[in-house]
């Protein structure tokens, strides 16, 4: 058992060190949701009235509504970014090195996933700290109960990135993934508007949003922030995480050779 733990600690520590070394990445990752919160939400506050649906028990401002969605956004962007950095050759080298370890490959990939998720969670808490200063606060227990929700959602989104990284052979830049994965996932979810609001404009859009695992990840986080538990969101997120993880492992299976590339 010991080598498994040693590898886990080493991989998490490496990600943490890299993260500390890249302060600009950290700031960029925080600026994005903060802009949404301060600029976008402030503008929409007047335009959008929210009715009282669970987990909300009283009238909620739009800014309060989108905080869980923005937490999800941090996890989504980070999950993609850290896994897709593997596509670039510099990181691919470190992946190759990782895969020469005599430990099972599924464990190595899981450790890497857990490492990048831990970093994302750290960022989410920093974001929640800033929103608290901005005036949007949750119960103290909510900050604790959101941790497992963030972990599951983060693993799911990281697994999505890992799965993509094993299938995408060449990537000119991050923009392709932004356009085809991140934006559709983010906009077709309950992150920015509640699903019932979506249903008012289009049933089809509503159905797409309801099937989007990111919606369920956001709802899991939203309920957990209010100390509540959302069973269907948990099942959806866990299910998606397992499927995506299986695809990622399949993609990195040497016999399948999805990481085959010349050179």
């Amino acid at each position: 058992m010991k080598p498994f733990v040693v590898v886990l600690i080493a991989i998490v520590a490496r990600e943490a060190r890299r993260f500390v070394g890249q302060r600009s990445r950290f700031i960029a990752a925080l600026i994005r949701p903060l802009l949404w919160l301060v600029v976008f939400a402030a503008g929409f506050r007047a335009a959008l009235g929210l009715s009282i649906t669970p987990p909300y028990e009283t009238y909620t401002t739009y800014e309060t509504y989108i905080v869980p969605g923005l937490c999800g956004m941090i996890l989504l962007f980070n999950g993609m970014q850290s896994s897709l950095s593997l596509v670039y050759d510099r990181e691919m080298g470190s992946m190759r090195l990782l895969l020469t370890s005599p430990l099972p490959r599924w464990w190595l990939l899981f450790c890497r996933l857990l490492a990048s998720t831990s970093i994302s969670i750290l960022q989410v808490y920093t974001f929640l700290g800033i929103t608290a200063l901005y005036g949007i606060r949750f119960e103290a227990a909510g900050y604790l109960s959101v941790l497992p929700a963030l972990l599951i959602a983060g693993l799911m989104l990281g697994a999505l990135g890992l799965a993509l990284s094993s299938f995408i052979k060449q990537l000119e830049n991050f923009a392709g993934v932004m356009n085809f994965v991140i934006f559709p996932m983010f906009f077709l979810s309950s992150a920015l508007y509640p699903l019932w609001k979506m249903a008012e404009s289009s049933e089809l859009l509503h159905d797409i949003c309801a099937a989007n695992p990111f919606t369920h990840a956001v709802e899991l986080i939203r309920f957990a922030l209010y100390g509540q538990f959302n069973m269907s969101a948990l099942l959806w997120t866990c299910g998606a995480a397992l499927i995506l993880l299986a695809i990622a492992l399949w993609g990195y299976d040497p016999a399948r050779g999805m990481i085959r590339r010349k050179g």
Binding site: K2, P3, F4, V6, V7, I9, A10, I11, A13, R14, L97, L98, T100, S101, P102, L103, L108
Partner: peptide
């Protein structure tokens, strides 16, 4: 880091 990948600590 590399030593840890091989289980040495």
């Amino acid at each position: 880091y590399f030593a840890a990948l091989h289980g040495f600590s």
